[in-house]
Design a binder for these strands. Structure first.
Lengths: 151, 151
DNA sequence: TTGATTGCAAATCCTTTGCAGGGAA
DNA sequence: TTCCCTGCAAAGGATTTGCAATCAA
């Protein structure tokens, strides 16, 4: 049901690795595959658990090292959602979105602000800044938690 | 040269503490005072060092515990700028601004996007979300670093 | 007096690193 | 063959926590 082609991305990752003089290893491909198969956010440890379950054991160190490569290559996006551990999400196959994060129940709602890209571009032009990424989160209480609080 | 009244804020903090059944202690007031006296961002450890220098020794644990209270009370804002340690800044006496962060040299440029509050309000209304705070950062290369890279 | 607060040290949690053996090119 | 990678275990850094002593109310 993916709106993107995991195989094509794996191939692109392979090319990327070679271009950077990095080696194409089973571990790296497995990590990418699981990252792409994950809906929504995940953290390093999630991948570790999933890979273990599938008997594709990979050390924590390798996962961390590979996540850095994947984020630098633009295959994944690292996002800070206020959790302790760094969160990641795949950067392909879905429109760029940001999050409303409920401080009550922890639910994360995705949203798209269509005006945001233009505003950012204008701003970056003013500063002569070459944007590579951004992060935008809104914290507060979701409708349910807000209602519960007012009861 | 503060555009805000530190004493008034300290008084408000005192009231806030009482309202929450927390005690007004010298440690808590000292921490607030130093936080207000700091221009720009700081992290927990910065306060520790400053307080030590001033012979207002306070344990690291108390600083962390107090920062949580101050952030919850809205006296400080916790911001994630991609550093390892959590960053804070006072939430009064300055217009709300966000940051362009250069991945090359680490410089943080402040900016204000006047449209942002309205966009967020509209969005939160759509979701029935009660916003309490947000965080917005743009990562990339500043003009200097971008120029250096292209040389 | 009484329960909250502090400081200390230990404990956690996430992440990074050094190193020796194994593997891609 | 030649480095690059991996896994392991240890190191690291930030933050939290348990506990006994201390202090605000």
């Amino acid at each position: 049901m993916a709106t993107f082609d995991a195989e094509a991305i794996a191939a692109a990752f392979g090319k990327y690795l070679k271009r950077k003089n990095l080696k194409v290893t089973a571990e790296r491909l497995n990590i990418l595959a699981e990252a792409l198969a994950t809906e929504g956010h995940f953290e390093a440890d999630d991948l570790l658990v999933i890979l273990r379950k599938k008997n594709r054991k990979t050390s924590r160190a390798t996962i961390y090292r590979t996540l850095v490569i994947l984020a630098e290559g633009g295959f994944l996006r690292k996002i800070c959602l206020g959790d302790r551990a760094a969160q990641f999400e795949k950067s392909t196959g879905q429109p760029r979105h940001d999050h409303l994060i409920c401080l009550g129940c922890g639910t994360k709602f995705e949203f798209v602000l269509p005006e945001l890209p233009d505003l950012q571009d204008r701003l970056c032009r003013q500063f002569g800044f070459a944007k590579s990424d951004y992060c935008f989160q809104i914290f507060g209480l979701c409708a349910d938690c807000a209602a519960a609080k007012n009861e």
